[in-house]
C-alpha cells in the first residue's frame, strides 16, 4: 500500500494542485509529521505508527493563510477534521484528503468505530468490521461499582495533561484544566472527578474515538470507556455522531427558538 500511496501522491504533487502533502516521515527509524513539498522526499514517507494528523493540519493551515495541502488521512483523522471544521479550526476547502484504510490489527487496537475514511484513495478497506464494545463491562456494573471504578482509575492521574495534549479536538489557547478555579494547582491526584469531568464535558459531541488520549496516558486510565459512553449518549439522546458530515449540526451548539 505504501508504494501505491507514494505513486498516487507523486501524481498529485505533479498536478500542482497542492502546495505540499501532510504525512509521516521516517527519519532514523522514527516517524514524525512532515510537510512534503518536493516529490523526491516522498521516498521517506511512512504510514505507521498512527499519528493525529488533524492537529498537524490545523496548525499548518493557521500558519499559511491561503495555500492548499493534501493530507494522508485515516478514518479518525477525517472525523477529526470534520469536527474541527465545524468549529472553524480548519478550512476543508484548503485540504485534499488522501484516504487510507487501517488494517484489522490497527482497527482492533483502537476499537475504531469506522477504521476507514469516506473515500479510500489507496488500499482496500475492511469488508466486515464490528468494533469491540469497550463500554460493555462498565455498563454491567452496579452504580456503586461504577463510582468505585472511576475513583480507582482517576486516582492514578498524575495530571500530566497528556490526554489533552494528544487530543486532536483540543484547540483552545487557554485550557480550563489549568484554571485554578476549577482544578487546584499543586494537588495530586486532581480532586475527583473535576479534571476528567471537564474533559468529558468539553468532548461531548466532539470526541471522534481516535484513542489518542488513552494511548498517551502513562497511568493507563481507560479514558476510551468514558469517551465511548459519551459518544453513546450523544447518539441516543440527540441522534448525533461526531465526525459525521458538515451538515450534521452539533445539538449542543444549537438554540431553541426563544420561548
Amino acid at each position: 500500500m505504501e508504494q501505491e500511496l507514494k505513486a498516487h501522491l507523486k501524481k498529485l504533487m505533479a498536478s500542482g494542485d497542492v502546495a505540499g502533502i501532510i504525512a509521516l516521515k521516517s527519519e532514523r527509524g522514527m516517524a514524525k509529521p512532515y510537510l512534503f513539498a518536493d516529490a523526491s522526499e516522498l521516498e521517506c514517507l511512512c504510514l505507521t505508527p498512527k499519528y493525529p494528523m488533524a492537529s498537524v493540519a490545523r496548525l499548518l493551515l493557521d500558519e499559511d493563510g491561503a495555500a492548499r495541502f493534501a493530507i494522508v488521512c485515516r478514518g479518525c483523522d477525517e472525523r477529526a477534521l470534520r469536527e474541527l471544521a465545524k468549529r472553524h479550526q480548519v478550512d476543508l476547502d484548503r485540504l485534499v484528503i488522501v484516504g487510507i484504510p487501517c488494517d484489522e490489527e490497527m482497527a482492533r487496537e483502537c476499537a475504531c468505530p469506522e477504521p476507514f475514511p469516506s473515500v479510500v484513495a489507496v488500499g482496500t478497506k475492511l469488508e466486515q468490521w464490528e468494533a469491540e464494545d469497550i463500554g460493555a463491562a462498565y455498563r454491567a456494573m452496579e452504580l456503586d461499582e461504577k463510582l468505585a471504578f472511576w475513583k480507582h482509575q482517576l486516582e492514578k492521574c498524575n495530571k500530566c495533561y497528556g490526554c489533552r495534549n494528544a487530543c486532536p479536538m483540543c484547540f483552545c489557547k487557554d485550557c480550563e484544566l489549568e484554571n485554578a478555579l476549577w482544578v487546584k494547582h499543586g494537588r495530586l491526584p486532581p480532586e475527583f472527578p473535576i479534571y476528567h469531568m471537564i474533559r468529558a464535558f468539553h468532548l461531548a459531541g466532539k470526541c471522534i474515538a481516535c484513542g489518542e488520549c488513552q494511548r498517551a496516558c502513562p497511568s493507563d486510565i481507560p479514558l476510551m470507556v468514558l469517551n465511548t459512553l459519551l459518544r453513546e449518549d450523544m447518539e441516543e439522546l440527540f441522534g448525533y455522531v461526531s465526525g459525521t458530515g458538515a451538515d450534521a449540526e452539533n445539538p449542543l451548539y444549537t438554540k431553541e427558538e426563544m420561548q
Binding site: 468549529r87 472553524h88 479550526q89 484547540f171 483552545c172 489557547k173 487557554d174 451548539y253 444549537t254 438554540k255 426563544m258
Partner: peptide, 15 residues
C-alpha cells in the same frame, strides 16, 4: 481576544 480560539460557538448561541 488573547484567549479566544475563534471556534464561533458563542455566535451560534447568542439570542
Amino acid at each position: 481576544t488573547d484567549v479566544c480560539a475563534g471556534c464561533r460557538i458563542c455566535e451560534i448561541l447568542c439570542p
